[in-house]
Simulated scan of single mutants.
Amino acid sequence: MPYHKDKQQSFQAAQQGTNEAFHLYENIDKSGADYGLQLKHLKEEVNEAYQQINNALENASETQRHRLEQYQRDLQKIVNDVNESSE
């Protein structure tokens, strides 16, 4: 049972981390005075979410694996958008 619990907890952590990164991304104020600070926080959250996803992938079920891979693609879209807007 501990293995299943760990698997579920790691998946939920990855899910939560991804959701937090998206929340920050959706609420970033590109014209605000603290845009740089917001961007730094977003990058930290994205990196943390990637780490959580990689940890969860180590023992994920097949269904979880597909969802985690989608999270990775979603996070990559954020990274690409941020990189394009800062060029």
Rank of each mutant, 00 (worst) to 15 (best):
E44W: 01
N19T: 13
S31C: 00
E69N: 09
N27W: 03
Q9V: 05
K40G: 04
A14H: 00
M1H: 10
Q52T: 13
K77M: 07
A21T: 07
L42A: 08
K7D: 03
D34A: 04
L39N: 15
E48S: 15
V82D: 11
K43I: 12
S10T: 05
N27Q: 14
Q72A: 00
T63W: 02
Q51M: 12
N59P: 00
N54S: 14
A21H: 04
Q38M: 01
Q76W: 00
S31Q: 06
E45V: 10
S61D: 05
Q12N: 13
Q70F: 03
K43V: 09
H66Y: 12
I28V: 02
A56I: 06
N47W: 03
L37D: 07
S85T: 12
N54I: 08
D81H: 13
A33T: 02
L57Y: 03
S61G: 07
E48K: 15
I28T: 01
F11A: 01
R65D: 10
M1N: 10
S31E: 04
D34V: 11
E20M: 10
N55L: 14
K7E: 06
H41W: 00
N47M: 05
V46E: 11
E69S: 02
N80Y: 09
K40Q: 14
E87K: 13
Q72E: 03
A13P: 07
Y50M: 05
E58T: 12
I78A: 07
Q76M: 02
E87L: 09
Q51H: 14
M1K: 10
L37N: 07
N55I: 13
R73I: 00
H66R: 12
L39C: 09
H4L: 14
E58G: 06
L37G: 09
H66N: 11
G17K: 03
E26A: 14
V79K: 12
Q51V: 08
L68V: 01
Y35L: 03
N55F: 07
Q52D: 15
G32K: 00
L37R: 09
A60S: 15
G32H: 02
Q38I: 02
D29H: 12
A56F: 07
G36C: 00
L42G: 11
D6N: 06
I78H: 05
N55R: 14
K5T: 13
R73D: 03
S31K: 06
D6L: 07
N47L: 06
V46Q: 11
Y71L: 07
L42N: 08
Q64I: 07
Q8L: 13
E87I: 10
D74I: 03
F11C: 01
E84A: 13
S61I: 06
K43L: 06
Q12M: 13
E44S: 08
A33F: 04
L75I: 04
L39D: 12
L24M: 11
L37A: 05
K7M: 15
A33S: 05
